[in-house]
Nucleic acid binder design. Structure first.
Ligand code: SF4
Ligand code: SF4
Lengths: 137, 137
DNA sequence: CATAAATACTACTTAAAGGTAGAATTAAAT
DNA sequence: ATTTAATTCTACCTTTAAGTAGTATTTATG
């Protein structure tokens, strides 16, 4: 019952980036050192984030990563989607998920509430929200 | 954001067993066939459940598994505990979990609610509750 | 142009979860 | 006593997540 390491790292990286100037260029070496994430793993993750279009990368000397759109428009659940970690409607605690409304186990109704809260949390939190209110991780 | 396969299987097995008579002896072959769980994996899981004391096993011919105490006294979170899948208080979405109340990220407060609901769900549901209200999986 | 500093790509290694095989042990039934 | 049907044990195999290594590519700077 936890996000994958990749998702966790990605959220930490991007919310740290959001704390800095939106437009500022940040490179992998600095990020890895600051956030204590293995450099090679960080670049692997960031490459996926770039492919997903959440961030642009500038290659070559003096390059780095930068948001293109404002961080208020980048939603946490978009990040999770990249690593197949976002919460689907049909997703069930028991991994079955096909039980119809009539024939359902007793966990079903109880599971609805936390599931919806988590979906809401991930779908209604932007990076700006996260970064603005918190401390550096 | 899902339980491990072992936990999922264990919940399904035990809640199915709870549907049958509490005292009835059920064997691995039948359970595996009924629940569509690989026989060898089922016995592996059940051995751990037995070791945890949730179920007693009768070895030898005509043997099988049976609850010793009533299913109303077996709590879902006890099952999860066996597979290190229960939700801890300090557990954090980002796997950090050491941030104090003063310095916390914006996910922190939002995460509290669903986390507490899930803990409540797992700690306040007995097998009798689950089995009584639902259909066979 | 040459160099240096950055990301991207390909491939590999390691660790953990998920699952399987076979033999050992137990005990009822005959 | 032997057989048969059950759990348990030990060891292994497979798949996926996590992490690493090395090289290629890109580009500003001098
Ligand atoms: S009824 Fe139970 S097993 Fe079926 S989808 Fe709902 S929570 Fe999952
Ligand atoms: S502040 Fe954020 S990172 Fe820290 S424990 Fe709370 S949710 Fe986790």
């Amino acid at each position: 019952m936890q996000l994958s390491n990749s998702s966790q790292y990605a959220i930490r990286i991007l919310s740290y980036m959001a704390l800095e100037q939106d437009s500022k260029l940040l490179n992998a070496t600095q990020l890895a050192a600051t956030l204590q994430i293995p450099y090679k793993f960080l670049t692997k993750i960031m490459t996926e984030v770039v492919k997903a279009g959440l961030v642009v990368s500038i290659r070559g000397r003096e390059g780095g990563y930068r948001f293109e759109k404002p961080t208020s428009q980048i939603i946490v659940s978009e990040i999770l989607k990249i690593f197949n970690d976002s919460i689907e409607d049909k997703q069930c605690v028991l991994g079955i998920g096909f039980c119809n409304g009539v024939c359902k186990c007793a966990l079903h109704d109880q599971w609805m509430k936390p599931k919806l809260l988590m979906q809401k949390m991930f779908e209604e939190s932007s990076l700006a929200d996260i970064a603005g209110k918190g401390c550096k991780q």
